[in-house]
């Protein structure tokens, strides 16, 4: 299965370069800094902590955006895949899965110590983890799409942030909204947004890869 070997290669590459740990460290750092900035008011921390974790997750997902596509484009890997007849959409889908595998699960894991830092109670933590499980694929999809759109441009990292953060607003709203919502409807909406982004990303990113090949 060509797509599987591509996913395996990308995940191995992310871990080898240590790049997979970077978003996680960043995520934990933001959580720590927030606790320092607000001070030791346990109630305030607990009330705002969930939202902070979602912000941190969003920013952490943004970190590797300039590395997802550009090295492979520059190095001719994307050309070699295209010559072999692999569609740009399937390449983008493989990149999406690989990107999620290298930051989604570790992000969910590192939410545990972050929640402890921010005095988040167990009930909220469960909702955060559920939200991250549903929402992080959407963040990966956005990351790959933006990465494909900005590949080869100067200042791609900063431009990537400007492009990605506004589109990520629904994920943030429903993800953070699920924290104070016992009915589960915010999680359902988060699922809908996530599904839409994940389903659309391979086509948007694939078209961007095709356009970049000139």
């Amino acid at each position: 299965m060509p797509v599987l070997s591509l996913i395996r290669r990308d995940v191995a590459q992310a871990w080898r370069a240590g790049g997979a740990m970077l978003p996680v460290m960043f995520f934990l750092l933001v959580a720590t800094l927030f606790a320092f900035a607000v001070g030791p008011d346990a109630q305030l921390l607990a009330r705002t902590g969930g939202g902070v974790l979602w912000m941190a997750a969003l920013l952490a997902a943004l970190l590797p955006v300039d590395r997802l596509i550009e090295p492979d484009r520059l190095n001719g890997v994307l050309d070699q895949l295209a010559v072999r007849g692999h569609s740009d959409e399937s390449v983008a889908a493989a990149k999406l899965v690989a990107h999620w595998l290298s930051f989604g699960p570790t992000l969910m894991l590192s939410a545990l110590p972050a929640a402890a830092l921010l005095r988040i109670d167990a009930g909220t933590l469960v909702r955060i983890e559920a939200g991250l499980a549903i929402g992080s694929p959407a963040l990966a999809a956005l990351g790959v799409t933006v990465s494909a759109l900005t590949a080869g441009l100067r200042g791609a990292g900063a431009l990537g942030g400007l492009l990605m953060l506004p589109i990520a607003v629904p994920v943030l709203i429903f993800g953070a909204g699920a924290l104070g919502d016992g009915s589960g409807s915010a999680l359902k909406l988060l699922g809908a947004v996530s599904l839409l982004l994940v389903a659309g990303a391979p086509f948007a990113a694939g078209a961007a890869l095709r356009a970049a090949r000139t």
Partner: peptide
């Protein structure tokens, strides 16, 4: 196609980098 871009993972040993494409 063999063009100016090697399309090989820089950190991998040459054998493994080539094997990725051969497997594909």
């Amino acid at each position: 196609l063999a063009d100016e871009n090697a399309a090989l993972d820089r950190e991998l040993p040459l054998g493994s980098a080539l094997r990725f494409w051969a497997r594909l």
